[in-house]
Amino acid sequence: MKAIQGMIKGAIALLLIAAISAVGWRGWLWWTTANTPPVAAGTTAKPVKLRIPPGTSAQEIGRDLQALGVIRSATAWDLWSRWRMFKEPDGGFKAGVYQLSPTEPLESVATKIWDGEVVRLGYTIPEGWSLRQMAAYFEEEGFFSAQAFLTAVERFPIAQYTWLPNKSEPGLPLLEGFLYPDTYDVSGLPVEPEAILKQMLDRFEQVALPLYKQGQKQTDLSFSQWVTLASIVEKEAVIANERPRIAGVFVNRLKKNIPLGADPTVEYGLGIQQTPDQPLTLDQVRTPSAYNTYLNTGLPPTPIASPGLASLKATLKPEDTDFLYFVARYDGTHVFSRTLAEHQAAQATIQDKRKSTKSSNAQ
């Protein structure tokens, strides 16, 4: 019975192929355009990336394309595939990674894969990004959804990397701070969150872990504390030569049991990002959180971002200074102070200058 059904399907396909040939390309182009997924007015369809493993059948490719929203009809895809194979029996769809747009006609999508127009797949994670920023980036770039990335983080088997801190407290973000910021080539990897996570962890193991082992005797910080403090330095520092000094200020405050008072930790705990025009409010600074370093002494329970090599080095060898405070000038630099009175005076001066500049610009 299955054999007969297969023969019937094959005969129908041949008839349809003949019909396509009869109506010509104009009719076929209308059909493929009609089977392009609709895009809402005023929006731009985001390209998506599809990896086709060797040996994938034409039907499987069609189903994957339909699931991604690149094509509307897997049936139309199947007809095009059969027509193309009928026309070019020696050809076929090529394995690889393709970047495709939901606004492309089916024929254009199919031709790319038939001709093997693969893309070199890679990604770049800047220093100071959090897991949520990475997740949004991968979704924007068409790798996979942000939620798929965050779910993979939560379920990642950290036992594979014995150097990773084993967080016993539930609810803490796994892997935060340990995904090394860099540019990666993933042309040979599956476009899956697990593979991406492993790649970034491997790079951290290759670059950052030896750095700590070499300088471990120079610091009182544990491995986890080192990465956590480096992540705060990364978020606070803008000018490269200020990193060791900022690290030195934080080390001094830790030694004296003074709260770090770092805005980025409050932002992380609240899931927000302040701007020069919308700084943290007093209520936000007073909001209890495990990451609020105004209310809590010591370091937060985890890193707040992925520190780069410069911040890791600066935290391992901070500047020997007696500064205990610093405040941003809004130009990337900071004013450093030794006493609270000096710090408050610096804050007032910077705020007065900022108000004066705003007033001048408004006139």
Rank of each mutant, 00 (worst) to 15 (best):
G171L: 08
E176A: 05
L174H: 06
T183I: 05
Q218H: 14
G215M: 13
E192P: 04
A208Y: 01
E169T: 15
L174F: 05
D202N: 10
L197P: 06
P193M: 08
S168M: 09
E205C: 02
V207T: 13
P190Y: 08
F204D: 02
Y212A: 00
L197Q: 08
Y180F: 15
G215Q: 15
L175N: 04
P210W: 09
P173S: 09
E169R: 15
Q216E: 14
D185H: 14
V191Y: 00
F178A: 02
D182H: 08
G188E: 12
E205I: 03
L172R: 14
E176P: 02
Y180M: 04
V191T: 01
K217Y: 06
K213V: 12
Y212W: 07
G177D: 11
R203K: 13
F204S: 01
L209H: 02
G188P: 04
L197R: 05
E194W: 01
Q218L: 14
Q214C: 03
F178D: 01
K217D: 14
K213D: 12
Q199E: 11
Y184C: 07
P193F: 07
P181H: 04
G215E: 14
Q218V: 09
D202S: 06
E194S: 08
L175K: 05
Q216T: 08
D202A: 09
P173T: 10
E176K: 02
E169L: 14
G215A: 13
L209S: 02
Q216N: 09
P181G: 04
V191W: 03
P190E: 12
P210E: 12
D182N: 11
Y212G: 00
L189E: 15
D185W: 13
F204P: 02
P210K: 11
E176F: 02
G215S: 13
L209D: 01
L175A: 07
A208S: 12
